[in-house]
Design a binder for these strands. Sequence first.
DNA 1: CGAAGACTTGAAACCGGTCAACTGGAGTGG
DNA 2: CCACTCCAGTTGACCGGTTTCAAGTCTTCG
Lengths: 221, 221
Amino acid sequence: MRHFTFCSVLQGKELEQLAGIVHRDATAAHSFLFQEGDPAHEVFNILDGTVKLYKSLPDGRTQITGFLFPGDFLGLSTKGDYSYSAEAVTDVRVCRFQKRDMTVMFKDYPKLVDRLLTIASDELAAAQEQMLLLGRKTAQERILSFLRIMSERAQRRGQPASPIHLSMSRADIADYLGLTIETVSRTLTKLKDKGVLKLPRPQEVILAAGYDLAAAAEGDA
Amino acid sequence: MRHFTFCSVLQGKELEQLAGIVHRDATAAHSFLFQEGDPAHEVFNILDGTVKLYKSLPDGRTQITGFLFPGDFLGLSTKGDYSYSAEAVTDVRVCRFQKRDMTVMFKDYPKLVDRLLTIASDELAAAQEQMLLLGRKTAQERILSFLRIMSERAQRRGQPASPIHLSMSRADIADYLGLTIETVSRTLTKLKDKGVLKLPRPQEVILAAGYDLAAAAEGDA
DNA sequence: CGAAGACTTGAAACCGGTCAACTGGAGTGG
DNA sequence: CCACTCCAGTTGACCGGTTTCAAGTCTTCG
């Protein structure tokens, strides 16, 4: 299936109707799309770049709950206030629209409801998978799971499975996997020494051909 | 707000219409409602008892992603196959109906769509909170967070905030918090020795009056 | 070329895990 | 009625993977 964004679909079909409803916007790396506690009346669709979602404790400890890439939605299934923060990891382009306008779209395009539920279902399944990772996997399994996730999402965007380009820092990877930056770095080095992967640059991972990433990420030797 | 189940609401209003659609059922403790990989065509509403949802790794390591109590839904936002297993912790009574029948209900009761999205949104927020717990909290913070969650959910069902009745075993608590049963036990003992709580029986926790559980669960001294 | 920041590497400490023994209450049967 | 068994929960001693603290190295960019 071909990769596409919600916005581009809308453009093709209902451009005039949606003029003044859908807005395009650019956001610089490290700036917020919104923060925990902000009222959630906007929905975003990522056009380009990487966004991180996270929650923090009072003393600063942080857990990244997900990364967003082109085509992904943000804020769709959020009611009331945002319960997490969204920050641009790289420079980002998004399209945004008011949630109340989406209700209007529901009436005209009832299939959107189904699509929305599918997205919510996928998000929840990913969240449960991440709980398994955070609660029960070793550092090495977490790193391999992370590489697998990044590789599969790149493929869904039409990119090759390997090399994997990591647009986020070691600190972000650590905050996503519930580890420290040192453990992330050490574990990658160990995998490199084992011949599982190559690291020509810190942000580029080349997987060894024939390595069963999925099995290794689940602890199957 | 008064506690009620979806089923009881339906009963009052649309009993005849739904005859043959909604079924009541009893399930013994430790038996499955469904397992990971089963096709997801049923939706459940818990009437009585406790249910656990979990995912496992090939070697048996298990992460419980949530507990369900009377009034809670199960399978609502699941598309395709279940990506997790659901098992009765205690004897359980549920009401069940086919998801395809729910689509019919959508047409007659459009507010259900909104309610559905609210449930999905709440589930996702809880999942993110749990990721923060699993990725970044200490054993003591996890136990206190757990007690807080159990207490608040009991209150939503019209029960007092304390004493807290734990219907699940130490093993289930451990699998929910990403710990071992020994650490769960030790941490509870430590909190008892500090005077934070009393443990008249393993499944009954009495919180010290005036103790700020919410703050302690987030690491505020 | 120099500075700043990201990443890596090393050594030591520590929190929670592992392994093992003990306790206590519920249920059973002599 | 009491001894026995069973199993969940508790407690203790030790271990080890990950964190912490502290240097190093590499890259980028002015």
